[in-house]
Amino acid sequence: MKTPDNIIHLKALGTVVSNLRDAMRHFVQRRLREQNIDLTFEMLQVINTLSEKGEINQQEIANLLNKDKTSITYLLDNLSKRGLVRRVEDPGDRRNKIIHLTEAGHKITDLLAPIVEELHEKASKGLSVDYLKNVTKSLQVIQGNLELE
């Protein structure tokens, strides 16, 4: 039985998306090492999320980064030890903690912004805005198809 072309291409797409994520992670980690910034790619994701969204709880961070709450706890513990984030009790629900960037956390975003900008510039080189919009929409459809169940 012959495999339909869309299945063949979807398998290739899955491989490319996985390899792209790895390449992005390696690019960022290389730049962080070059600048002696003691953070991992995942820590950078948390810091960027807090920088963009402001003060949010741990579950919201987990949802936005598509990670489990335990992984986020570990990342927040490490970021807290580095003095980059702090947890504050949620006045509306004492079981929740609201996560804040500290002053040092805000300062490090200034160091991280050029790395993220360079990543985006390099990754999008030679690609039109329309093309990127179409690829993004296609990937969102695929993601939505998988989340329906």
Rank of each mutant, 00 (worst) to 15 (best):
2 K>Y: 05
2 K>H: 00
2 K>A: 09
4 P>G: 02
4 P>Y: 00
5 D>V: 05
5 D>K: 02
6 N>W: 06
7 I>K: 05
7 I>M: 03
7 I>P: 01
8 I>E: 07
9 H>Y: 07
9 H>Q: 10
10 L>P: 03
11 K>I: 11
11 K>Q: 09
12 A>Q: 12
15 T>E: 12
16 V>F: 11
16 V>D: 01
17 V>E: 14
18 S>D: 03
18 S>W: 10
20 L>P: 05
22 D>P: 01
22 D>I: 14
23 A>Q: 09
24 M>G: 01
25 R>E: 14
26 H>N: 09
29 Q>R: 12
34 E>P: 08
35 Q>K: 09
37 I>A: 04
39 L>I: 08
40 T>M: 06
41 F>V: 01
41 F>G: 07
45 Q>G: 06
46 V>M: 07
48 N>C: 05
51 S>C: 08
52 E>S: 03
53 K>I: 02
55 E>R: 08
56 I>D: 12
57 N>F: 01
57 N>A: 00
59 Q>D: 02
59 Q>H: 12
61 I>P: 00
64 L>I: 02
66 N>G: 11
66 N>Q: 02
68 D>R: 12
68 D>F: 13
69 K>C: 03
70 T>K: 12
74 Y>W: 10
75 L>T: 07
76 L>C: 06
76 L>A: 04
77 D>T: 11
77 D>Q: 15
77 D>Y: 05
78 N>F: 13
80 S>T: 04
82 R>M: 07
82 R>Q: 12
83 G>T: 11
83 G>A: 04
84 L>S: 01
85 V>N: 06
86 R>Y: 04
87 R>Q: 02
90 D>V: 00
91 P>H: 06
91 P>G: 11
98 I>R: 01
98 I>A: 05
98 I>H: 06
101 L>M: 15
104 A>T: 03
104 A>G: 12
105 G>W: 11
106 H>G: 11
107 K>S: 10
107 K>W: 13
107 K>P: 00
108 I>G: 00
109 T>E: 06
109 T>D: 06
110 D>L: 15
111 L>T: 10
113 A>R: 15
113 A>P: 07
113 A>S: 09
116 V>R: 13
117 E>V: 10
121 E>D: 15
121 E>A: 14
122 K>D: 04
123 A>F: 15
124 S>E: 11
126 G>W: 03
128 S>I: 10
132 L>S: 05
134 N>M: 09
135 V>K: 14
136 T>Q: 08
137 K>C: 03
138 S>T: 13
138 S>Y: 13
139 L>T: 14
139 L>G: 13
140 Q>T: 12
142 I>M: 14
143 Q>D: 12
143 Q>H: 15
144 G>H: 14
145 N>A: 10
146 L>D: 03
148 L>V: 11
149 E>M: 04
149 E>P: 02
